[in-house]
Write a protein that binds this DNA or RNA. Sequence first.
DNA 1: TATATTTGTTTAAACGATTAAGCAAAAATA
DNA 2: TATTTTTGCTTAATCGTTTAAACAAATATA
Lengths: 340, 340
Amino acid sequence: MKKKRITIKDIANVLNISPAAVSKALNDDSRISAKTKEAVKRVAKELNYQPNHLASALRRGKSNLVGVIVPKTNSNFFSSVIENIEAVLNKAGYNIIITQSNESFEKECKNIDTLLYTQVDGIIASMANETVDLSFYKKIKSKGIPLILFDRGENDLNVDYIGINDYESSHMIVNHLVEKGCKRIAHIGGFKRTRIFNNRIRGYIDALKKHNLPLDNELLLESSLTTEDGRNKMLELLALKKRPDAVYIAGDYATLGALQVLNEQNINIPDDIALVGFGNEPFTAMVTPTISSVKQHSEEIGKLAAESFLKHVEKTPVIQTLNKIILEAELIIRDSSQKK
Amino acid sequence: MKKKRITIKDIANVLNISPAAVSKALNDDSRISAKTKEAVKRVAKELNYQPNHLASALRRGKSNLVGVIVPKTNSNFFSSVIENIEAVLNKAGYNIIITQSNESFEKECKNIDTLLYTQVDGIIASMANETVDLSFYKKIKSKGIPLILFDRGENDLNVDYIGINDYESSHMIVNHLVEKGCKRIAHIGGFKRTRIFNNRIRGYIDALKKHNLPLDNELLLESSLTTEDGRNKMLELLALKKRPDAVYIAGDYATLGALQVLNEQNINIPDDIALVGFGNEPFTAMVTPTISSVKQHSEEIGKLAAESFLKHVEKTPVIQTLNKIILEAELIIRDSSQKK
DNA sequence: TATATTTGTTTAAACGATTAAGCAAAAATA
DNA sequence: TATTTTTGCTTAATCGTTTAAACAAATATA
């Protein structure tokens, strides 16, 4: 007993027409009569025909697959972006291949090779923290397939980018803290070399200036933004002679670490030290006290990234230029900064 | 200026040999001389040759892609399983396509079709809560490609399954709570129709019997196990005339909801009511109080699932039978059940 | 009626790799 | 030396689909 695949040839044999006619009928070619189309589709269903995607992809030179690269799927932000990319692309007949870089440059390079090898029609990516060498991303561009970046991007690649206004978000946060009476606002930022984190740092500095608050270098720390490092950096801040009365942290996981430290040391949040995070991960609304955070519109980012891909993929040759779509983020105020 | 793909034909032309020889050289065929192999590989590198995966997949009848279906990537359990599946399969030359069902039966069916259409060489899946109709999974089997299930599986499909001992885990939990002096232990379980949740419920019931504790039906609730539903079910339990002194909840997110309710109502955890969750999601160690939970060995599950696929895919025809690998889970005791 | 156009189909060549079969030259064996 | 075996390659078919080109029949136009 052999498992023979049903091909268009089998359908053609049943109806005594050519495989070419079958192919055209299945693709609704205008030169095929309605009668034939109907017959072909009927027989296809009867025989339980499944098109061979590899064959058509090979012939068409298109795989209808889109690669997605994210640092990690297990944050709500990325998993939500992915969900929305998928929704838009599925409607347009594309499927996605998700890969994780685990914030590792090496893994990211491997992922890119894997995706190119799999002949994806384009790549939508958010870069790993470690990534500074852009040669692998340039390789994608040199293949002539669309590359779209979101959240973690780079101007130098000259491609579409979808993200939020990080600079402005820092202003929002500082404004909010100042309004609540905070005077010594610290910032635990991400790596400076990563554009989005750099923008948040610049925003923080400029916002302090705007409010005539002195910029104190010991209040500005660089962090990997893991929960663990959030703990460490918070401990550093507590060790200062002049402690801050508010800490703005560029990532929710690190904020969680900071919150744990404060709770352990019985420091009142927000009255002794107010806390604001970034990313609006679900747990920010779950911990005690709940954490104020910035909502990044992951749904919108996913949709726009997918649409940007679709726009580019239709054109040959693919021409890409720097085209930034910047969304305004939203500050969700919760207990950790809600001083009365 | 056209972007011409480099093919084996181009390499063949440079060296004045046949494309067949090039193909064999690249695949290290024993009938090709070392000299030719070296020359081919050198020219391939020089021309920046990238093999056309679609062509070789079509010819070989193998895509070297493996489909993975999970309810949602944004839990630590699934994202960790995926990471480990990927690590094992990459080493064996396979790449994975990740899809999410979002716990929807309809989406899961679509995912299966998508994966089959993409000609994956096998599928590793954890079923959606909603899924009772197994016809789409039978379709995978009927294609003659390996199907491996993990965590959420079904005996009736007669395929490899990797999971933890849910029945025994319930015993561990109840034993622990009894030891801490709890006498009225409630259980907020998952959907009974889902095998793993059913096993946890059976384990709970049998463990109560073992300890001669009466089974009170109002203490056994069925839940979707979302944070929201965890809140609701906890409120139900609190509304009882005779409140429980411990609640074992079959999922961490729901446990979090329950914890919020108890904190809001100033009910002491664990002294008034002890709490045990399931899944050991990272936040269980982050909230106040920290939540006792069951660690499911996601790394091991991922590895075993991938290895099971590799074992099956090498054999033709693929023969699958029910073969369960059951790991013993581990109870991580934290503050929420640590009565003194 | 003669010619042009449209319709509906077939033929055959791709897409880029793999591989069974064939064949000459080199090496091993008798 | 004659024969067999091995080595190293080529030829040609193949995977299943798409599509440019060809063509006959039907229809429209002059």
